[in-house]
Design a protein around this nucleic acid. Structure first.
Lengths: 195, 195
DNA sequence: TTGACATGTTATCAGTCGATTACTACTGTC
DNA sequence: GACAGTAGTAATCGACTGATAACATGTCAA
């Protein structure tokens, strides 16, 4: 019934997506091992058991969160490549990446994903995701290998700044560093990164 | 007695350092939450209880590991700054950073440290460490703020590549990316990063 | 309406982990 | 060669966590 405003149960696909969104935030803040399925369940507003049963295991959930995050980046980059406004493509990609900061969890979940390359399943997912993004900026955006590498490097710095919450620090050195890291518009960066 | 080759007990300072070295490797591979004090104890060749009691808690141990890692980077950079061989200082710093790859755990522990900015105690340590290194390359090496920022970005990319173990991947795209990330000498990078 | 299926929960469990305590043994010194 | 202090271990515990199972309830088609 859609006449009732308060739907009590969600179709599986929507519930799945809402769990993924909640898990993205929690994994982004605490990392894979540091996050608990109970924290994710609370964030999603359901029971811990349902989180686990929906994805089979915590590891599977994390891999799904990571794949979804890579997909978001791909979509944002493809849109930036298509929307040619005269600026160089690298600049458009950079702006698109900064916009992703609004979804803090996405970038932070990927940071944690990339830090766990030693784990068998998670590591493979991480390598695949990282190379996918590298190929996208090289082949679809047309950046030279060294340009693509530099671009990813700047992205990793943004991830680090975000994880450290340096944009909230008030020391002048932190302000200066974050300003350069985010490409100059500290004000916008801070707004996007605001909880 | 130093006539006996097999010393059975170590003075506190040496034992402390050996635990820190072992913990650096384990934290580097598994992260803070993913590592267990028992794994660290096995790596150090002592009992789990002794690891915890020596540092009071796992968190204190991690913070000590992180501070030690930052100290190693400081020392390596200061040496590179002092040893002026005609090359630009940024190039010397880059080479010094690549050399640190030999101690994989140091860079990987810092990667994990930087990913936990939301944690109260660990986050503060991470911000302090990151800013310390930024100030060093800016003030002591004399890099301009944007140069220092770029330098840190390349460092973060190296950390990521290392964590993902991309230097061991055989796909041509991975080889190309790692080559650019490490400054060209893939062979040396692989040797240093070898377990 | 009713029944069948999909959505969700409560209760519980076995394993793991950091920490504490009580105890043991080595080491150098007077 | 005993003593005092330092280095280290074994045993154990309570808390936490991911997973499972049994059960409950909402939803929709016929």
């Amino acid at each position: 019934m859609s006449t009732m405003e308060t739907r009590q149960r969600l179709p599986a696909a929507e519930r799945r997506e809402s769990i993924l969104a909640a898990a993205t935030v929690v994994f982004g803040e605490r990392g894979y091992a540091g996050a608990t399925t109970d924290q994710i369940a609370i964030a999603a507003g359901i029971s811990q058991a349902y989180v686990v049963r929906t994805f089979g295991s915590k590891e599977t959930l994390f891999v799904e969160v990571a794949r979804r995050a890579v997909g978001r980046i791909e979509a944002a980059f493809r849109a930036a490549i298509a929307a040619d406004d005269g600026r160089p493509v690298a600049q458009r990609l950079g702006a698109a990446y900064i916009d992703l900061v609004a979804d803090r969890g996405i970038l932070l979940s990927l940071l944690h994903l990339f830090s766990l390359g030693s784990d068998t399943a998670i590591g493979r997912t991480g390598r695949e995701g990282f190379l996918t993004i590298y190929r996208l900026v090289r082949d679809e955006a047309g950046l030279a290998p060294d340009e693509a590498s530099h671009f990813l490097a700047e992205g990793m710095l943004i991830n680090t700044v975000l994880a450290l919450r340096l944009q909230d620090a008030d020391e002048p050195d932190a302000v200066e560093l974050v300003t350069h890291a985010c490409g100059g518009d500290l004000r916008k960066f801070r707004e996007l990164a605001a909880d």
